[in-house]
Every structure is written in C-alpha cells, then in structure tokens.
C-alpha cells in the first residue's frame, strides 16, 4: 500500500499520528489544570466512569503511539543508510537542535510514557500513594494525594520535568513539521505555523511542568 511503502506516505502517517497525540496531550493537560480549581479528584472520577470508553480510548492511543514509534524508527534507519559517509566538516544552517534530535526526544518520551503509565495508571510504583488505595473525604480515589506525595520526592519530580523538556523539544519541531508534511500550509503561512508550533509546544510544556514544580518547591500542598 502506497501509504505504508512510500517515503511520503510514511511521513504522512507520522504527521497524522503525531497530530493525534498532540491533541491527546492538549486534552490531558487541560484535565490536569483542574488541579488549580481543586477539582482533580472529581475530574478523575468522571473520566473513569465508563470503562468501555476508557478502554477503547486506551487501545486507540496505544495503536497511535506504536505506529508513530515503528514508522519513526523505519524512517530514521532509512535516513541513516541514505547518508552513510559523513563529512569531515559539516555546517548546519537552518536545522535546529530540536529537529536534529527528534529520535532521541522521541525515545525519551516513550520511556517517560511507560514510566508514567506504571506510575499513575497502573499505580504500581510507590503503591502506598496509589489513588486507588487512598480515597478522599468524598470516597473518591485521591489523585491529589498521589500527585503531591510523589512529586514531593525530588527524583520523581525532576524526571517528570525532564520528560516534559523532551516533549517541548519534540513538539517545537514536530508541530510545524506535521503541517508541512500534510501540506497544510502555504508560502505565507509557513513562518506563522513554525512560530505557532513552537508557542504551542511551550505553552503545553509550562502547563504540564507547573504542577510538579509547584509541588516540589512547596507552593502546592494538600
């Protein structure tokens, strides 16, 4: 099939799965923001109210993530094979640190996701803080307690912050790149999309890291 075999087709797969994940990341961080209104436990309870929806959602996301990873690796390997002789001296003009390190920022994000799933979804890391085991005053799983308890451990907080730095890098190139690959731009809009992509990556980053950082520095507590 053209989509899977062709170089451009594979890039389109990367762009579409990438954009779906960006959408997910935005929804996720919007949910996170309920913490500032003291609604995180309520939000978490609502979110998990209908298991069939939760599970179909999870299956879709796993497929998307795995597809993105598999094709990302294939493309990367092909690219390495296409330029086997290095230059003795090579200068880059427009390439950015972010664009160059997509494979590494992506790999780190993948690692982060695995940890994050065991940490806050399966909740098998630091089980004593698990929201499933501790309920709040209204009998709901106490997500707030789990977050604060975990992020007060500096190593965990810092790991989350570094995961988000990887995400920042990945998105600062990935967002505009996906628009280019899908042809959703024009001569005029390219510079705007490049800037907007970086801005979006930065806003997402700030929103995410605000929680562990505030908890770590003690500005957010139970």
């Amino acid at each position: 099939m053209l989509l899977i075999r062709s170089s451009v087709g594979r890039k389109i797969i990367m762009a579409v799965t990438g954009q779906l994940m960006v959408l997910f990341v935005i929804l996720h961080v919007a949910g996170n923001m309920t913490i500032y209104f003291d609604l995180i436990n309520a939000y978490a309870e609502k979110l998990h109210a209908f298991p069939p929806i939760v599970w179909s959602y999870r299956i879709i996301m796993i497929t998307v993530v795995l597809t993105h990873i598999v094709f990302g690796l294939i493309l990367k390997i092909e690219n390495l094979l296409s330029n086997p002789h290095g230059y003795v001296i090579k200068q880059s003009i427009r390439k950015t640190f972010a664009s160059e390190t997509m494979i590494w920022s992506g790999a780190f994000i993948a690692l982060f996701i695995v940890y994050h799933l065991f940490h806050f979804t399966v909740q098998s890391i630091n089980p004593e803080l698990s929201a499933r085991l501790n309920t709040d005053a209204m009998g709901r799983p106490d997500v707030m307690n789990m977050l604060v308890g975990n992020f007060q451990i500096a190593s965990i907080g810092l790991f989350y912050v570094s995961g988000m730095i990887a995400l920042l890098l990945h998105l600062s190139h990935g967002v505009q790149s996906s628009f280019q690959t899908l042809g959703l731009n024009s001569e005029k809009s390219i510079p705007i999309i490049v800037k907007a992509g970086k801005l979006a990556a930065f806003l997402i980053f700030v929103a995410y890291v605000s929680i562990p950082i505030l908890i770590m520095v003690g500005l957010m507590d139970l």
């Binding site: 170089s7 092909e78 296409s82 880059s92 427009r94 664009s99 160059e100």
Partner: peptide, 12 residues
Amino acid sequence: QFGNCSNHYECN
C-alpha cells in the same frame, strides 16, 4: 536510496 524528508529545511 535517497532518504526521507524530515523538514529540517537545510535544502532550501
């Protein structure tokens, strides 16, 4: 055996 475009824009 050309590689794939990853939108670095070095070409331009």
